[in-house]
Simulated assay, not measured.
Amino acid sequence: MVTVGQIHAGTKHNIIPSEAMLGLSVRSFDEQVRAKVLASIERVVTAEAAASGAPREPDVISDERFPLTVNDEAATERTAAALRRAIGDDRVIDPGPVSGSEDVGVLATAAGVPLVYWFLGGSDPSLFGDGLATGRMPEDVPSNHSPHFAPLIEPTLGAGVAALVAAAREWLAAP
């Protein structure tokens, strides 16, 4: 997935800018796909600059890169079971693969521990009807990077605290 998150060019509506900057986010579930997408972006940007008669080659800078965030299967099931017991089976859903851009995988790898990354929903359920009853996240629920993201303080805060406490107790309990 390629997201154009920033466009910066010029200082006034009636002056042609001397340069433009696009800020992109590239996310994939496969390193080979990612490499192909990055190469394609560079190819397209270079071709567009040449076609428009740009005086120099464009700078294509890749300054943020995170490894794939992959949950440990056994640890995820153990944590999910603890969450189901604490906040209810109907409130723990599997969102499926998510193309997040997180550095938590680096931390888990460095610490030599299994990764369990989860999301805490906070959207007003009255806005999405029965969409959550499917056991999967509805497509139209705004994520934390959406301009429409507006979590409810409660029950979000209470559920979040209960979830964190349940996960901590599960993993810190004496064997």
Results as ranks from 00 to 15, higher is better:
residue 2 V to G: 10
residue 3 T to V: 15
residue 3 T to L: 15
residue 4 V to M: 07
residue 4 V to F: 11
residue 6 Q to K: 15
residue 9 A to P: 03
residue 11 T to P: 04
residue 15 I to P: 02
residue 15 I to N: 07
residue 16 I to N: 00
residue 17 P to M: 09
residue 17 P to V: 01
residue 17 P to D: 01
residue 21 M to A: 01
residue 21 M to G: 01
residue 22 L to N: 00
residue 23 G to T: 05
residue 24 L to Q: 02
residue 26 V to Q: 14
residue 26 V to N: 05
residue 27 R to L: 09
residue 30 D to L: 10
residue 33 V to Q: 09
residue 37 V to R: 00
residue 38 L to S: 00
residue 42 E to A: 13
residue 42 E to I: 09
residue 45 V to D: 03
residue 48 E to W: 06
residue 48 E to F: 04
residue 52 S to Y: 07
residue 52 S to E: 11
residue 54 A to Q: 04
residue 54 A to I: 05
residue 55 P to N: 09
residue 58 P to T: 01
residue 60 V to T: 08
residue 63 D to Y: 07
residue 64 E to V: 15
residue 64 E to P: 00
residue 67 P to Q: 00
residue 68 L to N: 06
residue 69 T to E: 02
residue 70 V to S: 12
residue 71 N to Q: 13
residue 72 D to T: 14
residue 74 A to K: 11
residue 74 A to M: 05
residue 74 A to Y: 01
residue 77 E to Y: 00
residue 77 E to L: 04
residue 78 R to Q: 05
residue 79 T to G: 02
residue 79 T to W: 01
residue 79 T to F: 09
residue 83 L to Y: 00
residue 84 R to G: 04
residue 84 R to M: 11
residue 85 R to K: 14
residue 86 A to M: 14
residue 87 I to D: 03
residue 89 D to Y: 04
residue 89 D to G: 03
residue 89 D to A: 07
residue 90 D to G: 06
residue 95 P to E: 07
residue 96 G to D: 09
residue 97 P to F: 04
residue 99 S to F: 08
residue 99 S to A: 04
residue 100 G to E: 10
residue 102 E to T: 08
residue 104 V to K: 05
residue 104 V to Q: 12
residue 108 A to T: 05
residue 108 A to E: 11
residue 109 T to P: 03
residue 112 G to K: 11
residue 113 V to I: 13
residue 116 V to G: 06
residue 116 V to D: 07
residue 122 G to N: 01
residue 123 S to T: 02
residue 124 D to I: 03
residue 127 L to C: 03
residue 128 F to V: 04
residue 129 G to E: 04
residue 132 L to Q: 02
residue 133 A to K: 15
residue 135 G to M: 12
residue 137 M to Y: 13
residue 140 D to F: 07
residue 141 V to S: 03
residue 142 P to H: 06
residue 143 S to I: 13
residue 144 N to Y: 10
residue 147 P to C: 05
residue 149 F to H: 01
residue 154 E to T: 03
residue 155 P to R: 02
residue 156 T to L: 04
residue 156 T to M: 09
residue 159 A to I: 13
residue 159 A to H: 14
residue 162 A to R: 06
residue 166 A to C: 02
residue 168 A to P: 00
residue 168 A to F: 15
residue 169 R to M: 11
residue 170 E to H: 01
residue 172 L to M: 06
residue 172 L to W: 10
residue 174 A to L: 15
residue 174 A to P: 03
residue 175 P to K: 10
